[in-house]
Amino acid sequence: MLQVKALNKRFASTHAVKEVSLEIAKGEMVGVIGSSGAGKSTMLRLLNRLIEPSSGQVIFDGRDITALKGKELRHWRAQCAMIFQQFNLVPRLDVLTNVLLGRVSYNPTLPMMIRHFSASDRALAAQALERVNLLPQALQRADTLSGGQQQRVAIARALIQQPQIILADEPIASLDPRNAQMVMDSLREINQRDGLTVLCNLHTLDTAKHYCDRIVAMQHGAVVFNGSPEQLDSKTIRAIYGGQSDAQDLIEGITSTSLTAKVAVPA
């Protein structure tokens, strides 16, 4: 179980994350919504400590994540794989090597300098690529793939980290609706089949409602809603997105890429 206790992050002039407290059970798929600048991305990066919190605690299965250092911290990062809006592959390396990058933290540094990966690592990478239907492209350079394919490579990279949690930062914001659906479907499938906890920043409300067990809404760095998709009524939405005149117009505006889940979501 992932527990977040009174987490704060202050940058020079902004208070990006304010007193955030959450509890996320193992195997849950949680969607974090909110307008841009609400602190969603910062919050996600506080969890794997790409950004250091100003105060507060993150606890995973009783372990204080905020106190980890060096090797233990790197091990924690391997445990919670991250997926990015811009995919963040290394464009000049081939697809297979990009996936294998998910294994570097499990290997000693020196053999890694000459890009030597063990047979078992390469087998894992091939399996992961097969799962996202990209095995034929394994030896192509990453920048020859389309956006949707690149994001699936990023998912394969996350998978071979053999993580317990997947942190997805706006994974579909740069994709067309079809690719967005494919990416969300595979995240949901990983969540259901492998029982991984998924924490997903989204800004399309419909997507969050369709795919997630629970929705957390953030505004100005603070959590303003935390509950099931059914509890999220138009009054709450209006409050989250800043109470403009007509909530109905607003909802249509922010759900322009409305997706319907292919994977059955258990009631």
């Binding site: 794997n48 790409l50 790197r74 091990h75 924690w76 990062r77 391997a78 445990q79 794989a81 991250m82 990015f84 963040n88 592959l89 290394v90 990058l101 998910g102 570097v104 933290s105 990023a154 990279r157 980290q161």
Partner: peptide, 10 residues
């Protein structure tokens, strides 16, 4: 890219 590799625990 740096952020992504850092996030894998490298």
């Amino acid at each position: 890219q740096v952020e992504a590799i850092r996030a894998t625990g490298a």
